[in-house]
């Protein structure tokens, strides 16, 4: 499976999420730090309004001149095929304050629904909220 074709699954705030691998610049360690003023480190669980667990890895997304690193707890070895993504219902899309949901994917034989986050779009939103700010950012 090529990088274009799969989702990575990760734990954040004690829950499982997924993101498209092709939206990531790299996956770094927990202690990744912004190298330039244009970059920033964001604890993803706090951004999503969840209680953050111990930092495990950082999902780095290119944004403008820099990078935005989303800190998560762990990354699963399981890869989910991109075809598993289902579109967000139009009704739900209209209810969301931030359009950061790329889709939803079933897991555990269809018993659960995993959210597929649109990390590049979330990075765009993070930057739009506080373009001058650098360093860590938490919940909106």
């Amino acid at each position: 499976m090529g990088r274009e074709d799969y989702l990575i699954e990760f734990r954040c705030g004690g829950r499982s999420f997924a993101a498209e691998a092709r939206g990531l610049r790299s996956i770094a360690g927990a202690h990744w730090r912004p190298a330039t003023k244009a970059s920033r480190r964001v604890v993803l669980a706090e951004l999503l309004g969840l209680t953050a667990g111990p930092a495990g890895r950082t999902l780095v997304v290119a944004r403008g001149q820099g990078n935005i690193g989303f800190v998560v707890e762990s990354i699963s070895k399981r890869q989910i095929e991109r075809q598993a993504i289902r579109p967000v219902p139009e009704l739900l899309q209209g209810w969301l304050r931030v359009p950061a949901l790329a889709g939803l994917a079933y897991y555990a034989g269809g018993e659960g629904v995993m959210q597929v986050l649109d990390l590049p779009r979330l990075a765009e939103w993070v930057e739009a909220q506080a373009p001058e700010e650098t360093g860590e950012k938490g919940q909106p």
Binding site: R86, L92, W95, R97, M114
Partner: peptide, 25 residues
């Protein structure tokens, strides 16, 4: 059914459930 909470949704959206292949808020 297990309801999966959705980030950035207002408090009156409890989340989503999977119903026969559809994702339902």
């Amino acid at each position: 059914l297990e309801v999966t909470p959705v980030p950035f949704a207002p408090g009156w959206i409890e989340g989503v459930v999977g119903v026969r292949g559809d994702v339902v808020p």
